[in-house]
Each structure stands twice: as structure tokens, then as C-alpha cells.
Design a protein around this nucleic acid. Structure first.
Lengths: 103, 103
DNA sequence: CTGAATCCAGATGGATACTG
DNA sequence: CAGTATCCATCTGGATTCAG
């Protein structure tokens, strides 16, 4: 019961799961790419949520020495342990949509 | 990418996962029981979140004809399909806590 | 391109009191 | 017991602008 709260503390926020999901699919992804992947998110929120994920050691941030600057995000080893859950959740989302309505 | 959003739309809110988690463990559970299970939640929020879960067909509400009135909550068949994810998430929460600190 | 800063509306949620 | 109603502080998050 306590453990589930610990997990949710890390995954809270409107966009965390979607961001992780994006990184799951692509292994490595740039800021602007994620901005496109996650429909509706603003750069303000993406920046903030990525920072939180980084603090919690789920995401690794790398600045590429290009011009203009590019920044690469990827899941850490620890972040990768979420993959199974993300995939299950995705499957569930698909089934759920089918079940609720032909929305 | 869209599917994950569909799933999160249903599971949004600070307490949804914890509530479902409580129902997972006990099969059937009363209002005041869940209030105790989910540490920190207020009756106002519990009421509201349960209602949303009911609308989304994840939870079934039954009024027992006792005095004083008791209300029973349980996962629907559809809600039960979340069990695997909840369990995985719980396991992950335990591992995560170990990894982040000896908190 | 990748953010950080500011401004601000609306949603979230706690505390408390009240009802059937 | 199982909520509902009200009040109110805080948080969330969008839009926009600015900077390295």
C-alpha cells in the first residue's frame, strides 16, 4: 500500500507517463522531438517534468556539442525497468477505449 | 502514444491508483475502510474519485441495506484487468525506494 | 534549439460543518 | 456510516516573451 504511493510520487504530473512512453519507443530522443510526441504539452511543462524525472534517476540528459545546441534524453537503466509497465498500460489503454465506447 | 493518454485520463488524480490498489487487495471494501487504506486522503476526495472510477466502469458501488447504511465498493471485471499493472507498479515502487535511498 | 521567467486563470484539494 | 456543501489556499499549467 505504501509502495504504490512511492511509485506514484515519481510518476505524478499530467505528462510523466507519456514522456517516459516516448523515450521507451525511441531509446534516445531530443527535446523538440518529445515536444511533438506528447500531444498538447508545452515546453514549460516538458522542461519541468524532464527535470523531475532526471532528479529521480529515471532519465538521463546529455548536451550534444552541436550548433545550435541539441539535447538528448534517454531512459536510465532504472528508468528502463518501467518499460513493462508502460507497455502494459498502453495495451490496457487500447482495450479500455474499445470497451468504453467506439469513441 | 495515444493509448497511453487514454489510460492516464482514467487514472488521473492524486489518489486513483491507490484506491484501485486498495480494492485489488480486498476484493470488496467499504467507504471508511478505503479512507483508512489510502493514507492522507479526505472523504471529499475519496467520494469524488470513486465517483469518477464508477463512471469509467472500473468500480462498482453497492448500497447495503443495513443500519446504519454501509456502502461496498469493488472492482468491475474491467477494473480487474488493471490488477497486473497495479501489482507491477507496487513491485516497482518497492525497488525504486531501495534504489533511490535507504529512505 | 533548449530552455528559463513571468503572468495569470482555472483546477485541485484540505478543513470544517452538516445531512439522511 | 457515507457522503455533500462551502470556503479558501495552493498548485497546475497555458501563453507569451526572453536568453544562451
Amino acid at each position: 500500500m505504501r509502495a504504490i504511493q512511492d511509485a506514484m510520487d515519481v510518476l505524478n504530473g499530467k505528462w510523466k507517463i507519456s514522456i517516459i512512453s516516448s523515450l521507451c519507443c525511441y531509446n534516445t530522443r531530443r527535446f523538440s522531438d518529445i515536444l511533438n510526441d506528447v500531444e498538447g504539452i508545452s515546453n514549460r511543462m516538458l522542461s519541468k517534468e524532464l527535470k523531475e524525472l532526471e532528479i529521480n534517476k529515471l532519465v538521463k540528459r546529455t548536451v550534444l556539442d552541436t550548433q545550435p545546441i541539441a539535447v538528448q534524453y534517454e531512459l536510465t537503466e532504472h528508468g528502463n525497468t518501467l518499460k513493462t509497465i508502460i507497455f502494459n498500460l498502453t495495451d490496457w489503454g487500447i482495450e479500455h477505449r474499445k470497451k468504453i465506447v467506439g469513441k
